[in-house]
Computed example of a mutant assay.
Amino acid sequence: MADKCHLCLLGLIILSSLLTGTSGVDDAHVFISSGENVRLPCNNDLPDCTSTTWIYNRFSHSAPVELIGLGIENKDIESHDRLSLGSDCSLNIKNITKDDSGLYICQQYMNGQQQQTNDYFYLHVLHVSSSSSQTEISAGSSVTLYCQLYSYTGDSCDDWIPSEGIELFWVNQAGVKLTISDSRYQISAPGHCIITLTTTLLNEDDNREWRCEVTHRNQVKTSVTYTVKSSGEKMNEFHELL
C-alpha cells in the first residue's frame, strides 16, 4: 500500500512540475495521431525488465494506473491488448486512440527500493472527426471538420498550451495554411486545443485533402489528413489518413 501511495505522490509531483514550467520538460512531449503506434523508451541498465514499472495518468485530476508492474502486464485494464513491453523495457502502444493521451512514467526498482531516475512522457494525441455521420455526403452540403489535441490536462489545456508554443492549423493539399480570410472556409478556434474547418462541398472536391497540423515551437510534430471521395453528385467520407 505504501508503494502505491508513493507512486500516486510521484505522479502528482511530476505533473505539477510540468504545469509550473520546469525546465527540461520539452523533451518529454510526444505528439502522435490517432491510429498510429508509439514507443516510449525507458532508461534501464539492468539485464531484464523485472525491475521496470510503467505508470499512467489520463488526466491531472485522475488517479494513476499501473500498466506494467515489475515487468508484468496488468491484464485488468481495457487497453492491455494494445500494450506490450519491449526487450529494452520500452512501452509499446498500438493503434493509439484519443483516450491514450496522458502522462506516462517509467520507474525502476532494485531490492524493493525505487531508483531516483524516472522517465516520463506527456503523450498528446491529434484526432480529427466530422460533423457528418453519413458515409455519403451530397455536393452542396456543408460539413465541419473538428481537429482536437487531447492531452493529460483535459479541459484545462487552454491554460497550458499557449505557454508551450503549441498551435493547431488547417492546411490545404498544397500545404498552404487556411485562414479566416479564405472565402470558401470558415476557420474557428473555440479553444487552444481545438480548431474547426467548415466548408460547402463542391463536385470538384473529389479527392481533395484538408490536413490538420500541430506545431510545437514552429515545428510540425504530427498531422491528420481528411480526404473526400466523390461519386457523381455524392461525397463519400473517407477514413482519416496520416
Rank of each mutant, 00 (worst) to 15 (best):
N92R: 13
W160P: 00
A189R: 11
E237P: 03
W54I: 06
L7I: 15
C147R: 06
I187N: 04
N172G: 03
N118R: 10
W210V: 04
H124C: 09
S130A: 10
V224E: 11
Y120G: 01
D27F: 00
G21C: 02
E209R: 14
D119Q: 08
N57I: 07
P162Y: 01
T198Y: 00
A28K: 15
F59A: 14
S142R: 10
E164C: 09
I187H: 03
N43R: 06
L10P: 04
E233H: 08
G102W: 05
H192D: 05
D45T: 09
S33P: 07
S151Q: 02
C89I: 04
S141H: 10
G191H: 00
S132N: 11
N111S: 11
E233A: 11
S79T: 12
A189I: 00
L18Y: 11
S141F: 07
Y150T: 05
D81S: 15
C193N: 08
L126C: 06
D3V: 12
I105A: 05
S16F: 01
I96G: 06
S141I: 03
T200V: 14
L7Y: 07
Y109N: 07
G69S: 15
S101C: 09
Q186G: 11
A139I: 09
I96Y: 11
H239L: 15
H29T: 00
D99V: 04
P162W: 00
L15F: 06
C212W: 07
L83Y: 14
D88H: 07
N172Q: 05
R211W: 01
K94T: 12
M235T: 13
S142C: 04
D76E: 12
Q108G: 04
Y56T: 10
S223F: 14
Y152T: 03
T179G: 09
L83R: 13
G165L: 06
T50Q: 13
I14P: 01
K94R: 14
L15I: 08
C5T: 15
S79L: 08
E204A: 07
Q113V: 15
D158Q: 03
L46N: 07
S142L: 06
R58Q: 13
S60D: 14
E167H: 08
L241E: 10
N236I: 12
E167M: 03
L178D: 01
T117L: 14
T200N: 07
T215I: 00
V38I: 15
Q107V: 15
H127V: 02
L10V: 10
D27A: 13
E36L: 07
D76G: 13
S130P: 11
G165A: 07
C42Q: 10
M235G: 15
H124S: 08
D99K: 10
K98L: 04
H61A: 14
C5S: 15
K229L: 09
I137P: 08
L123R: 03
T52G: 01
L197W: 03
L201T: 10
E237Y: 02
R58K: 14
D88Y: 02
I32F: 11
G69R: 10
S138V: 10
G140F: 12
V38L: 07
D3L: 13
T20S: 14
A189F: 00
Q219H: 09
N218L: 11
G191N: 12
G71Y: 03
V30A: 06
V171R: 06
